[in-house]
Write a protein that binds this DNA or RNA. Structure first.
Lengths: 219, 219
DNA sequence: TAGATTGTTAATCGATTAACAATC
DNA sequence: TAGATTGTTAATCGATTAACAATC
């Protein structure tokens, strides 16, 4: 490993397993609140998610004291608490790179907006796509402007919806523009400087997991 | 829990953690093979993936004896072996439900095809979409025909790219048509009968994990 | 107070790491 | 044989489960 490589270590801290479940608890808590409940027990949070109540209590206790013994969790406090832990008590402007099929789908994805993630800039390298306007009214800008624009807009999160061949170059531009977190849809390992995080969504891997389960289910 | 609920248990076996890494090893092995290598060591497989060589050896040894001491792994045998384990030594016809933005992106996704997953039927409930032809030449069919057509085509895998509100109903139709595995993009927990598996891709959860990492990185 | 339900403790389980004997 | 590299063993680590004392 060269010195340069050492600086750009590929190892990235994974969030503890409980963090992804916090998102689920948040969603469920909001659902119960919309149904008119003020309080919910760990069982009410757990059951619809297919998780054990013990797991819910343990997870929530890891991040704070959100409950009231005998009463359960006060939903408005729980929701505010989880949001604070996840960092979604604030808005997050997001840069999207790659305005192909997947990019267009992500621009329109309601789930992001509902959680405070707002795609505020869109980039592509294809001249035919530059200047196009997304359904949300964002003009697609040329990829060369990634660093400049993300810095200008104070963007800390990026979504990578480009082919693997372009992924590393785009990553470098995002990082140069101050981006600290990348949601990566390209099936490739990104090289990142310390302090920059990556979560990858690898659709092929997911489908192969499913094939594995079917393959070995009843044999 | 009622008797009916018990039959439709929500608990689904997760694949062991090593399985998702097998997919990555497969991809890396194919890459090295295309570069002209006959053999690769656990280190050559591991390093570009940001995984330790010990992890690679342990994972591969869990599923068979793919290596040759002193030589490394013979790539053609390793590739064939991993494919056999994952079940991707065969073709998998896949049903896609939901031809919105995400559905269109998935139809065009090369990664699936390269691994033997072929979207062979596409369904939507929107009359405006029915009859449309995908880039791959598939005609979008009405959602009512899901069960009939999946059975007819012998489809065992389904992809759910519909809103949460429709997810359970579509799932039931897929299962009625003989589907045993569902890749679920709707942010909702599906109720499934025994012997049917689900892998969920929850984009909001992933982005929230990333926000969490940024939030608590250097504080 | 009695009933309900949390937060915590201890036990278990599964995954990862490190080291090295086996063996090509 | 000597060098290389696997497969396996033992140790560690982190995640999950179960039970219950604390307490509203």
């Amino acid at each position: 490993m060269s010195n340069v490589d050492r600086k750009r270590s590929r190892t990235r801290t994974r969030p503890p397993a409980a963090v992804t479940r916090l998102s689920l608890y948040l969603r469920q808590a909001e659902l119960l609140q919309r149904k008119g409940l003020q309080f919910a027990s760990s069982e009410q949070l757990a059951e619809p998610l297919g998780i054990s109540d013990a797991q819910v209590r343990r997870d929530l206790a890891t991040f704070g004291q959100f409950g009231l013994r005998g009463q359960g969790y006060k939903l408005d406090e729980l929701i505010a608490g989880i949001r604070r832990v996840l960092g979604t008590d604030q808005r997050w402007p997001v840069a999207l790179v790659g305005y192909g099929n997947l990019g267009r789908a992500l621009v329109g994805y309601q789930g992001f907006r509902e959680r405070g993630f707002e795609i505020s800039a869109v980039f592509d390298s294809d001249p035919a796509k530059i200047g196009q306007v997304t359904s949300s009214g964002i003009v697609v800008e040329p990829a060369e402007r990634i660093s400049e624009r993300t810095r200008q807009l104070g963007i800390r999160l990026g979504i990578l919806a480009v082919p693997s061949s372009a992924a590393q170059q785009v990553t470098d531009q995002l990082v140069a523009g101050g981006v600290e977190g990348i949601l990566n849809f390209a099936p490739t390992q990104l090289s990142l400087p310390p302090g920059v995080y990556c979560v990858s969504v690898d659709l092929t891997v997911e489908l192969e997991s499913l094939a594995f389960l079917l393959q070995w289910a009843k044999k």
